[in-house]
Write a protein that binds this DNA or RNA. Sequence first.
DNA 1: CGGAATCCGTAATGATACTG
DNA 2: CAGTATCATTACGGATTCCG
Lengths: 126, 126
Amino acid sequence: MDNIDFRLKEKSYRCYFELTLDLIGGKWKPIILYYLGFHGTLRYAELRRCLSKITERMLTKQLRELEMDKMVNRKIYPQIPPKVEYSLTEKGKSLIPLLNQLKDWGEGYFNDNIELFDHKTLELEE
Amino acid sequence: MDNIDFRLKEKSYRCYFELTLDLIGGKWKPIILYYLGFHGTLRYAELRRCLSKITERMLTKQLRELEMDKMVNRKIYPQIPPKVEYSLTEKGKSLIPLLNQLKDWGEGYFNDNIELFDHKTLELEE
DNA sequence: CGGAATCCGTAATGATACTG
DNA sequence: CAGTATCATTACGGATTCCG
């Protein structure tokens, strides 16, 4: 049982960048936000397929935190079998341009150092 | 003894964003890069003070990886007591505008939700 | 289908010495 | 000062079971 209260209350940061990292940093949150931004709306199992290496436990945990922080919406369809859709909130969407810039930066890094990478480094699907 | 070879060789990513995360993601690299960008050049102990909660082991490990990935320069002064200065490479510097945008985003999040934060959340030093 | 709960093993990280 | 080495702790992954 995590705190229902605001997650970040009583935390302390030395600069706004540290706050940003607490909100959207870590191993999984950036890529979850990126794929949600890229696809718009995804069901739980679709999201899981996007992040092929994540475990269900971690995906659920990260989604709950992102939900608490008002970064993602969780829409439950009360039916059997259940259906749950995840999407970005407005706050979450405001992050998309920055995430895309980071993706472009990675592409630039790749092109600038292409001789160092294996030719199978990228299996792009976009 | 880590591999002297290129760290990212033989890895595989589904999109450039995943490559970006492998280069500069994780718990410590973003904030290390941010503070190096903010201050320009920092000695090992100065950097450690910036990231008050990092252990020496983690700081060293992250710096070595960033160095391998050509994100950070490590300049050793052969003297006693030793002196080592860290700074961003050109590739690293190209990231600064994006990191600053992320900082601004965090500031926006804070201002939009200021009633949810404790008044002691930020102890800004900038 | 979308989880939650559990048990267990391993990998990542932390705390605390200690050193050239 | 700038790290290493060692050991302890925690986080995380994997598999399984269960449920509305």
